[in-house]
């Protein structure tokens, strides 16, 4: 059997920050150690505000850990944000092209890739619209297309569907699974919805309340796409929900 290589690892991560109002150092992360394999879909779940998004920021290089080491084998990292974080002054097409433009790729190649991604996420006909003219679901599709456009081998997602209505979120989760299968990209997703994590993830990291650490790692050995009405699915959701301490 072929063993998958580690694409991302963190060892003994600590993170704290100074609260300027009280002068106190607030500890957010302590002793976070994990490995994520190439092509895996991993979800981080835990109580609200425990520091899951902080880990994602450290992994993406947006924040520096106070102590510990992150080792990333991925050549390209992309991120999808909770509120989509599109640039309001750019059209759908220009937003998707942003990362490619930063890589100084020629215009015809950018056009080709962007058109492909627009079709893939179902945004044909909306190419020249501005974010202000789009619904929440469409904005998130643009966010996903912008991330996929740079062909990342590691995709970080910070609660990407939490601000969407149930039906749109459900549809986008299915599309995300298709994308994951098609591109074989490693995905690390933060979510506060256990059902979402059980539906999508190969492994779920359960985080403790702040200062957070990994309480448990649960492997979900159910075939994808998962039957959300099956007893196994319910059992997993129930088991993990009980483990999350608020």
């Amino acid at each position: 059997m072929q063993t998958k290589k580690t694409i991302l690892s963190a060892s003994d991560l600590y993170y704290s920050y100074l609260n300027e109002d009280t002068g106190e150092h607030l500890s957010v992360l302590k002793n976070i150690t994990f490995e994520i394999l190439e092509g895996e879909f991993v979800c981080f779940v835990g109580p609200s505000g425990c520091g899951k998004s902080t880990i994602l920021k450290i992994l993406s290089g947006l924040e520096k850990s106070t102590k510990g080491k992150v080792n990333i084998e991925a050549k390209k990292i992309a991120m999808v944000f909770q509120n989509s974080a599109l640039f309001p002054w750019l059209t759908v097409r220009e937003n998707i092209a942003f990362g490619l433009k930063m890589e100084n790729i020629n215009k015809s190649e950018i056009d080709k890739i962007v058109t492909e991604k627009i079709n893939e996420v179902g945004l044909s006909g909306f190419e020249d619209k501005y974010p202000i003219e789009l619904s929440g679901g469409m904005k998130q599709r643009v966010g996903i297309a912008r991330a996929l456009a740079i062909s990342p081998d590691l995709l970080l997602m910070d609660e990407p569907f939490s601000s969407l209505d149930i039906l749109t979120a459900e549809k986008l989760r299915k599309e995300l699974l298709d994308i994951w299968v098609k591109y074989k990209v490693t995905i690390v997703m933060v979510t506060h919805l256990v059902e979402e994590a059980v539906e999508l993830a190969d492994r779920i990291f359960i985080f403790a309340p702040r200062p957070t650490f990994i309480e448990e790692v649960v492997s979900i050995n159910l075939d994808k796409p998962r039957d959300k009405r099956s007893q196994e699915y319910y059992d997993q959701v129930d088991k993990i929900s009980r483990q999350i301490k608020t």
Partner: peptide, 14 residues
């Protein structure tokens, strides 16, 4: 400025 937009700009190479 929106922090997430700034983070997005940085992640995508700006």
């Amino acid at each position: 400025a929106d922090k997430d937009q700034e983070n997005a700009a940085r992640i995508f190479g700006a």
